[in-house]
Simulated assay, not measured.
Amino acid sequence: MNEGLIDIELTRLIAAYIFVLVLILIVKVRKISREKQIAIATMRMTIQLILAGYILTYIFDNPHPLLTIMIIMIMEIFAIRNVFKQVREKLSKQMKSIITVSMLSGSLASLLYFNLIVIHFSPWYDPRYFIPIAGMIIGNSMTGITLGVKTLIQGFSASRARIEGALMLGAEPREAAKPYVDNAFDSAVLPTINNMLGMGIVFLPGMMTGQILSGISPLLAIEYQIAILLGILGSVSLTVIIFLLLGYRTFFTKDSRLNDLG
């Protein structure tokens, strides 16, 4: 027992894996070939979280600005790599560079503003605040930009003839690309907006639930959750719009013709 929080013993934690077995049974009965992926995902999740727990325990007990910065950079690198993997379409070096710049500039700018202005904890590198908040902001920015990249590429691929027609009629690349850029932005931010619409009524978010279970006042937990959600919304919006404003240009040549790929 820790400050009112019930400690989940190892045997009871193992019992939670019954839900994984139920899922494997369902896909096996339905003949959906996902058993291996489910097993691998479960093992990776378990190992990664255990390692993260030990690493965070060490960092929390030995706070240092360089350690905090190193962890944030590792998170950014893995997030950017995940975007490349999840998009699956072939990405040019220029597009990869734009994704990298957008992720770093959008998420880090939002993270620093949120930590230094909104929460304003001291010292500024306190890992107990910095790292969990960074995880939420960077993770959601990663999801947003992934959706944005996929939707933009699919839009240009499916509407190539229409875009070329607009260019032939005298439209500038910015004008010809606008519907597809707007659609990509809408697709990228919609999951965050939907979460905000259902939060507090349909479900309680994980951070707020964890704080309440640990004994913190629900009102204080709500304050933090509202602030975090607004920070996530700002980070996703900024990251995605930077990518889109730079990324759509890779679909066009210098003389305003349409490329085969971005």
Rank of each mutant, 00 (worst) to 15 (best):
G4D: 10
D7N: 15
I8H: 10
E9H: 11
T11Y: 11
L13W: 13
F19P: 00
L25Q: 15
L25Y: 13
I26G: 10
K28E: 07
K28Q: 12
S33P: 04
Q48S: 09
I50F: 07
L51E: 15
I55M: 15
I55W: 05
Y58S: 14
L66H: 15
L67P: 07
I74K: 11
F78G: 03
E89K: 13
E89S: 06
K90S: 09
K90D: 12
Q94D: 08
M95G: 09
T100D: 06
G106A: 03
S107R: 04
A109F: 00
A109D: 14
L112A: 12
L112F: 08
P123Y: 13
W124R: 15
F130N: 06
I131V: 14
I137P: 07
G144S: 01
L147A: 09
G148Q: 08
K150M: 11
L152Q: 08
I153P: 04
M168T: 08
L169D: 01
E172M: 10
P173A: 01
A176S: 11
A177Y: 04
Y180D: 01
N183G: 13
V189A: 08
P191T: 15
T192K: 12
I193M: 04
G198E: 05
L204C: 02
L204Q: 02
L204G: 04
P205Y: 03
G206M: 05
G206H: 08
T209W: 00
S214P: 06
G215N: 07
L220V: 10
E223Q: 13
Y224C: 00
I226F: 00
I228C: 11
L229V: 11
G234E: 07
S235D: 03
V236I: 02
S237L: 04
T239M: 00
T239R: 03
I241P: 05
G247F: 00
K254I: 14
S256W: 06
S256M: 13
L258A: 10
L258M: 03
N259Y: 04
D260Y: 14
